[in-house]
Structures are given as structure tokens and as C-alpha cells.
Computed example of a mutant assay.
Amino acid sequence: MDEMQLRSKIILTDRFDETFEQLKERFSEALFYHISADDFLVEHAKEVVDRAYLTSDREKVIVLSAKRFTPIAQNKLLKILEEPPSKTHFILMTSTKAGLLTTIRSRLPVVDMTSSKEEIQLTINLETLDLAQLFSFLQANRRIDAKEAALLTEALAKEAMRSGKYRLDEALLETFAESIRLLDMGSPPHFVLTRLCLKLLERKI
């Protein structure tokens, strides 16, 4: 897939400003709107809808960049993503798919433009997860730092989605997003990881 083809999409990136400038340079004839926030909230979703219906003869690109998209805000975007106004394209920029609803991911292709980063190999089998495994996993990771905890959170989210053994509802997706947010705010990594894993175990099918 050409990541620079003009179409609605999700772009995974850890360089928001640089990626936005690349898009503007590539599609210089288009009219760009950029809505950027650490947390994409309902008020941002309303702004997106308002801008989408502004009349223009040019191709219009509305870029939404955020570390976290709240589930309520994502639900507000569903209809306009499915039925966008003429000549209007939406680009969601974020660093991970973990906090995006399945209904959002199913509507837009995903392009990964993240810098190469360390991959963490999970030492826990989510398909057979129980309290004993969970305790051993948490003990083995009791001294991790915030960066390692964030990578583990992303790995757990990907594996939970892949396994099909968990109820991936809005509450669980919000837990993944909130875990990243808590780590950014300086919460103890082991506390955040423990909280996430217990929530995950609750939703095992």
C-alpha cells in the first residue's frame, strides 16, 4: 500500500509533526485541517464533523493526531468515517492500534510508519492465562521501567486481539489506552501492569 496515497486511513507513527508535514508536502493542492491533542475527546470529534462539512472546491484532508483516542470520541466519528462528505479524507495519526475500536479499524486501512523499535517477546500465554501464570509474569517484570511497561502494554494488546480469547469491548480498549496514559504521567510501571493484567484476566472468554 502506498502510505502517501490520498485516501482516508490510519497512520501509525511516533513522529506526528514530521508525518503531517510529509502529507502536506505530498498533497500540496489539498486543503488541510489538523486537529492535534494528547487525548482526542468528544469536543475534538465535534470539531472534525464541523470542518468536514465546510464547503470547498479542493480536496480536503482532516488530520486527527493524538496519543490516545477515547472510545466515546471514536464512536462520534463512525458515521462520518463511513459516509464522508464529497472530496473529504480523514487521516488518524496515532502511535499504536491498541486504543482504537475494532469498528474504527475495520473502516480504514492501517499504514505503519513508526520508527523501528525494540520488540518485546511476551513470556506469558494469553490463551491459557490464569492467576498462577499472571503472578509469575508480574514477578518477573516487577522492576521494569516506564518504556518497557509501555512496550509490554502494546504487546499484550496485540496478543489479546490475535488470540480471540478476550472480550475486546470499549472498557478493555480504554484500559489499554489508560495504561499508556498513566505511564506517561509517571505512575509506577509495576502498578500499571498489574492493573492491566487483572482487567485482562476478567475479560478472558
Rank of each mutant, 00 (worst) to 15 (best):
K158H: 12
D14A: 10
I91A: 02
H34S: 05
R167P: 02
Y33C: 03
F137V: 10
L54V: 13
S116F: 07
I10Y: 07
R7I: 00
S86H: 12
K67V: 00
L138H: 02
R58C: 04
Q139M: 03
S115Y: 09
K199C: 12
T128R: 04
K158Y: 05
L81A: 07
L182T: 00
K165C: 13
R167F: 12
R162Y: 12
I124K: 07
V192I: 12
I180N: 08
M161I: 04
Q22V: 06
A146T: 04
L78M: 10
E59M: 11
T96M: 10
L129V: 06
D2N: 15
E202R: 14
K165D: 07
E59N: 10
R68Y: 14
H89L: 00
V63E: 03
I104F: 11
T123G: 14
D39H: 13
K60W: 04
E43I: 01
S116P: 11
D17I: 07
L126W: 11
T175D: 13
S187V: 13
L92R: 00
Y53S: 03
R162N: 06
F135Q: 14
K79W: 14
I205L: 13
L138Y: 02
L108V: 01
D38V: 04
D2W: 03
Q22C: 05
Y33G: 01
L168R: 01
K76T: 05
I62Q: 07
E29Y: 14
E159N: 08
R181W: 14
K147W: 05
A73W: 00
A150H: 01
H44W: 05
Q22I: 13
S163K: 14
P84G: 05
K67N: 13
R107Q: 14
E21V: 07
E154L: 04
D14W: 14
K9P: 10
F20Q: 00
A146S: 14
E59C: 02
S163E: 13
L201C: 11
L122T: 03
L134M: 15
V192P: 09
T102D: 15
K79T: 09
I10G: 00
R162H: 10
K46W: 09
L173P: 01
I62Y: 10
E18G: 09
S136P: 01
E119C: 03
L156Y: 02
K147V: 07
E154N: 12
E174F: 11
H34C: 01
P84E: 06
E118H: 12
M93E: 00
T153R: 06
F69D: 01
A45H: 11
D38Y: 09
K204A: 02
K24D: 02
L126D: 04
L173W: 04
A177V: 05
L77D: 00
L200M: 12
A52I: 05
L134W: 06
D145A: 03
Y166A: 03
A140G: 06
S163W: 15
Y53V: 02
K158M: 09
A66C: 09
L92H: 00
A149Q: 04
V110D: 02
E154C: 05
A30G: 04
E119T: 06
L23G: 01
S136I: 06
E83H: 06
L168W: 12
T128S: 14
L183D: 01
I91E: 07
L183H: 05
R195G: 03
M1K: 12
